[in-house]
Design a protein around this nucleic acid. Sequence first.
RNA 1: GGUCGGGUGGCCGAGUGGCUAGGCAGAGCUCUGCAAAAGCUUCCACAGCGGUUCGAAUCCGCUCUCGACCUCCA
Length: 558
Amino acid sequence: MSDLHIYNSLTRQKEKFEPITPNHVGMYVCGPTVSGESHLGHARPYITFDVVYRYLLHLGYKVRYVRNITDAGHFEEEGRVAEDKVAEKAKLEMLEPMELVHKYTNLFHWGMHLFNTLDPSIEPTATGHIIEQIAMIEDIIQKGFAYEVNGSVYFDVKKYADAYPYGKLSGRIMDDLLETTRDLEGQDEKRNKVDFALWKSAPPQHIMRWKSPWGEGFPGWHIECSAMASKYLGETFDIHGGGMDLQFPHHESEIAQSTIAHGHAPVRYWMHNNMITINGKKMGKSYNNVIKLTELFSGNHPILEQAYHPMVVRFYILQTHYRSTLDFSNEALQASEKALKRLWEAYEVLKSLTEEKCTQSFFNMLSGAINNEIAESYDENTILTDIHNQISKSNINLSSSSDTFKRIRMIVEQNKNLVEEKNRTLINLQCIINCLECKEFMDDDLNTAKVIANLFDLTPTINSIKGGQLNIEVICKETLLLIKDTFKTYLEDILGLQGLQAQQSDTLDKVLSLLIEMRKDARTRKDWATSDQIRIKLAEAGVLLKDGKDGSVSYTIE
RNA sequence: GGUCGGGUGGCCGAGUGGCUAGGCAGAGCUCUGCAAAAGCUUCCACAGCGGUUCGAAUCCGCUCUCGACCUCCA
């Protein structure tokens, strides 16, 4: 169905993506712990996997995308005292735990919508699945891989590791773990330091508590994902995503639990996004360098020089491959802001171009080219003829992996000088390459950076048509349609980007049109003082006027 | 300390055994009443030292250096 290849953290290599059930994909992504406000760090995985989700949908898969809300709060696993983060925070803020969790869940959704992420198909909460978690724990106990001590239940990692490849996902070695894990007090309950809690007994003052076969308590951090993923996606599902920092111990534990409960590994493809860093350091509470989304969008943070539009942040994230670290800086964000504006304005221009003036069809142009333009001087007649024979008369629908496409690429590479000379055939071929390659790049482990680069490659062509440097007749009808389709598909549908323009109002538009007319009059009269004053005053108000070559004037609002 | 991953032009960032993305900034030019916008041109980098190779920034080794995980974290 597709040539999509994704990097599988489990095997540490790119693999061809083949869903378990043809045409259907099950994807689970670890969601946020809603014990506090979402921050810039949260933006990365949810935007990354939003693009994965959008791309799978684009490829025609029926996708069930499950992303949980952790509202039960984890305890400090290795800590001395069982602590529930939600319960602690609720006490601090004088809120009911559920009230607190609801508040931050809403804030999370608010941020995700501003980032234009699509809602997951199911967004299950940990507190809503206590029964499933208890059932899974009981199952694991029954199978002999978990044990109860004083109302808490621990997973027997050592026993598991004897039979299964524990540590495969995160590259851990059992013996190292046994030696390295910090020696903390209060661990007497565990048989081994590497064991992790499935259920934790709640001390009397603890607010969030549920009845269980082992007394009142609350679930361990890892079990919720396993329980909910298997409930909604089945015992084995296609993709599990999350941040790299979750690889160990969270995802490793998920594998262990599910493997025992179901008798086999839960996930086919593990995908992990890299971290966002600030001045080279990971953003995290422990580093005191967290920028909350509310601060990011308002600019209200010591590190921030200005407010950043959610789309700028999204674009900034997608300009980097998801497995690379991404270092935050004002300079980089500001560069992204300008870049996105330029790209989006080109897209607006593109939408305004109509193919009526593209008199020549690609098919006919190629016919002509075979006999004169380039084939004559470069002995590529056969190749062009071959392309000619393979493309349809009304549509350019080539796979980037087809031989024909490879030949197109070859011709263009061999005739780069002619592209510069504005050779009609080569300009069209170059545009087609830029468009068709986008799929190739997405298929190669979601290389959004390259997709964006190709869209930028098309930008001068689009702007040249508007600016008059390039006659639209040079571009074939099919080429223009393909470019339009590529921008719509990749920029909007797959990358999920939007323009930065403030909401337009008719009233404002009429007012500005009036001012623009007045300025035009002034210019006709060569009354430069008036025309400049209008331009300058509008600029001060955040409205930038752009004079087109044909006398038309457009504006953008800051 | 253990495990893993990086070091790319002024900045951000793709990628590749030879044809060397893209963005932002800078410079020059075209257009413009002047600007802005747009277009064109330019700026040819891959931590250091060895090695493999006809050829390495890309493969191997060592050194320096940064980071991640090993503890809640996206």
